[in-house]
Design a binder for these strands. Structure first.
Lengths: 137, 137
DNA sequence: CCTCTATTGCGAATTACTTTTAATGAAGTA
DNA sequence: TACTTCATTAAAAGTAATTCGCAATAGAGG
């Protein structure tokens, strides 16, 4: 594995990574900002965004792109899927045995070279399920 | 099947729908705007956004939410998956026999009620593959 | 230490989309 | 056909999320 350039471990980068690894949720950049701010009150939101980009580019964390208005980040890079709440966009982890997806060749994929796939689940998170029930939507 | 209220078919809505059904690509709102503008030069981008929302809400077209910075729309509502180019975010169709995804219960999904899932492919589109090759990135 | 250059913090800019407002026009009614 | 009504429109302003530009700063190797 060729390491292009070792990541320079600045105070803010270390703390961002540390906070993200610490939680099992999938926070937005905003939420990471709030978490990190408790330890580094002067950090800027742009720095948080930049580092989340750099860290996900380096494969140290995961950037969850799919759906919703805000990106989310995951400190857990082990193999698992995600489920997104259709109401509040909260993201949870799904641990299932590897899903068998038939091989797809270019002819079936508009000439695209297939690199991989992911399975995305959607549903209702416990919090929203509770609200829904009480408000009889 | 209860029809809430029949869609009022305005000139601009008809043309938006027509242009979207005409192509087999998955244009962004911007691209739809450009297409429609050739026939309705005075239409506004907001109208395009609003109608794409209304049409997808009515199930006449598909809104593709997953990944990239811009939403994409699909005039083809038949059952198929999508593949996204990791370089340019272009979206293509993938026609595969229904993928078997094992049932997931709440305990495996952080307490979420699972409503469904989709399989997303990613890869490199023909155009980007060609560029990559020539520029030896 | 000292230098070199990646990284930071700040505010301003950009992107992608949504809302507001007043005017318009599609479709049902007489 | 004329009238009515209310969903829909265009244009502009607004908003939220993210990114950029740049001077100041600070890790890491020498």
């Amino acid at each position: 594995m060729i390491q292009k350039r070792p990541l320079r471990m600045t105070r803010q980068r270390r703390i961002i990574l540390d906070e993200l690894k610490k939680v099992k949720s999938h926070p937005t950049a905003d939420q990471v900002y709030e978490m990190v701010r408790r330890r580094l009150p002067k950090i800027s939101l742009a720095t948080v965004y930049r580092n989340l980009d750099i860290l996900s580019g380096a494969g140290v964390i995961l950037k969850i792109e799919s759906g919703g208005t805000q990106r989310r980040y995951d400190g857990d890079t082990s193999d698992h899927s995600h489920i997104r709440c259709v109401r509040c966009n909260r993201v949870g982890d799904v641990f299932v045995s590897p899903v068998h997806v038939p091989a797809v060749d270019e002819s079936q994929a508009c000439g695209f070279t297939v690199l991989g796939h992911r399975v995305e689940f959607y549903g209702v998170c416990p919090e929203c399920a509770r609200e829904k029930k009480s408000s009889r939507a």
